[in-house]
Every structure is written in C-alpha cells, then in structure tokens.
C-alpha cells in the first residue's frame, strides 16, 4: 500500500451522458471501486451536472438507461457528492431537476476538496 491510511479518491464527472460513454463507464468505475472501501467523493461539474438530471428516458435512442443507478452512490459508500452550483445555473438547472438530493457548492469548495485527494479520476 502506498499509504498507511485510506486512500482519498475523487471522481470528477464532467461529461454528459449518452453523447459519449464516459459518464456510463465512469459510473461503473465508481461502483467497482466501492468494494475497496476507501474514502470516496464525486464531483459533478460542467456538463457532468446533466448526469444527475431526473426524468431521463433513453428508450427512443436505443441506449441502456443508467442514470437511475446514480441513486445507489450513497449505498455504495460514495457519501460525498458535490455538484457545482455555477455549472447548474449556466445550464438552467435547479436542485429540483436532479434525481438525488445533493450538496450544491461553489467551485472553490470543490477545489478545496480536490486539493485533499490522493487520486482524481476524470469521467
């Protein structure tokens, strides 16, 4: 082990779902990592805030619907979920548009949490 304590890992989600695979496969990474019981945080920034938009229906594009799975994050031990308020505002989203209750914070807060991490993985 590189550290004699839990490793702090942040998933930095900046990509919207469906247009590319990053959000979906990023979610897979989060759920698998959970088995290793380290200290996890997820940040939804830029187009990543669309990952958490509720009432999505992908049946018309023939792609697997996966956004509902973000709701298991807490059960899987990803307890710190930060969403960037400015990214939401820029995109016309309010907390009511999201599928899970989240902590809406400013970029500085996310930056400070980021600065404490051992690993930041982008999706």
């Amino acid at each position: 082990m590189a550290r004699d304590r839990l490793t702090k890992i942040m998933f930095m989600c900046r990509q919207a779902p469906y247009g590319s695979v990053y959000a979906y496969e990023g979610l897979e990474v989060m759920l698998i990592f959970a088995a290793y019981e380290q200290e996890y945080a997820a940040a939804f920034v830029d187009d990543g805030v669309f990952d958490l938009k509720k009432d999505k229906d992908s049946s018309g594009i023939g792609m697997k619907e996966f956004s509902t799975t973000y709701r298991v994050m807490e059960d899987y031990g990803i307890e710190k979920v930060y969403v960037d308020g400015q990214s939401m505002k820029d995109r016309g989203l309010t907390p009511d548009d999201l599928m899970i209750p989240v902590e809406v914070v400013d970029r500085d807060t996310i930056a400070k949490v980021m600065a404490e991490q051992d690993v930041v993985l982008p999706f």
Partner: peptide
Amino acid sequence: RSALASCLASAQ
C-alpha cells in the same frame, strides 16, 4: 472546449 476555463476556475 471549456477545459482550460474550468481548470482555472478550480486552481488554487
């Protein structure tokens, strides 16, 4: 893309 702008918004 906005990667640089986003980075600058987060840099300490």
